[in-house]
Design a protein around this nucleic acid. Structure first.
Lengths: 135, 135
DNA sequence: TTATTTGTAACTAAAATAGTTACAGAAGGA
DNA sequence: TCCTTCTGTAACTATTTTAGTTACAAATAA
C-alpha cells in the first residue's frame, strides 16, 4: 500500500473551496472521499498546523487560511506526507569497496536533484488550478 | 519501509562495471552492499530479464549486456522497481460529489506530468555517469 | 447549558519491504 | 563424465507503513 495522503488532502482542500466559506464537517468531507471522518480529521489537523485551513470545534472547517491561488500542492505535500523522499537509499554499505564507500553520497546528490525538480513542479500548481477542473 | 531496489540495483550494476568484465558472484556483490546473496540474485534475475546484464551458472555475472553509457537509470528503475508511480491516488470516491467525481482523473493527469519529467531525468543519467564517481 | 465537532490516542488489518533458508537445476572445468 | 559451484526461485519471517476504525476528552457555538 502506498501513501495517498497527498491525494486525499488535495481532495479535502478542494471540497473546502467548493463549499465557498460555509463550514464543513469532517463527516461531510469523508462522505465525498468515501472514508472515515477520523482519517479526515487527522489530515485536517495537519493542514491546520501548517496554517492552510481554519477549523473550529462545533462548526468544523470554516475555510482556507489563505487564498486558493496562494496555496500550492507543495504546501499540501509538506503538510501531510510523512515520507517526502521520492527515492530511498540503502545504508550500511561496505566501506572497503569503492562502490560501497561512495554510493550513498553519490545517490543522495543525484536524487536531490530530481527531488528538487519535482518539488518545483508541485509548487507551481495552486489549489485554484485544481479547482478549475471541478467547475 | 520504502523501496531501495533502485538504489541497490544501481549499486549492483556499478560493482559489475568496476570489475571490468571479470565474472562476479552474487556473494561478492552482496558483501559490498552488506546484504544477503539471495536478495542480490533476485535483483540480478530481473536485470537479466531486462537484458541489462549477462549471467552464467557457475561463473556468476559475466558482464553488462550493453555498454555502461547505453544503460540509463530509467532502464534499471523499470527493470527492478515493482511500484513505479511516484504518487498514488485514492479510489472509490463519491461520484455524487463534484470533487469525488473528477478527482481521480484530475490527479492522474497532473501526476503523469510529474512522472514523465522524473523519468526523463532518470533516462538522462547513464551508468557510465555514475561510475565516474567511484574512480 | 447543551448538543456537536474537533483533536487525538489506541487499536486492527492489510500490504510492502528487506532479509533469510533451502534446494533443484545449470554449467564450467578437471 | 563427474563434481563443484553458482544461479534462479520458492517459501518463509520480521519489520514497517498504510488505511481504516472506535472511543472519548475538550472545546465551542448557539
Amino acid at each position: 500500500m502506498y501513501s495517498t495522503k497527498l491525494s486525499v488532502s488535495i481532495h479535502i482542500m478542494s471540497v473546502i473551496v467548493l463549499m465557498e466559506g460555509q463550514p464543513v464537517t469532517s463527516e461531510y468531507i469523508a462522505s465525498s472521499i468515501n472514508t472515515n471522518p477520523a482519517l479526515v480529521r487527522r489530515l485536517m489537523s495537519r493542514l491546520k498546523k501548517a496554517k492552510l485551513i481554519k477549523t473550529s470545534t462545533k462548526l468544523g472547517v470554516t475555510g482556507l487560511a489563505r487564498e486558493a491561488k496562494d496555496i500550492s500542492l507543495l504546501d499540501i505535500f509538506f503538510a501531510t506526507e510523512d515520507h517526502q523522499d521520492l527515492f530511498s537509499i540503502h545504508s550500511n554499505t561496505n566501506p572497503n569497496c569503492p562502490v560501497g564507500a561512495k554510493i550513498e553520497v553519490t545517490l543522495k546528490h543525484l536524487y536531490d536533484n530530481i527531488q528538487t525538480a519535482t518539488e518545483e513542479k508541485l509548487s507551481a500548481i495552486s489549489l485554484a488550478d485544481i479547482i478549475k477542473e471541478f467547475i
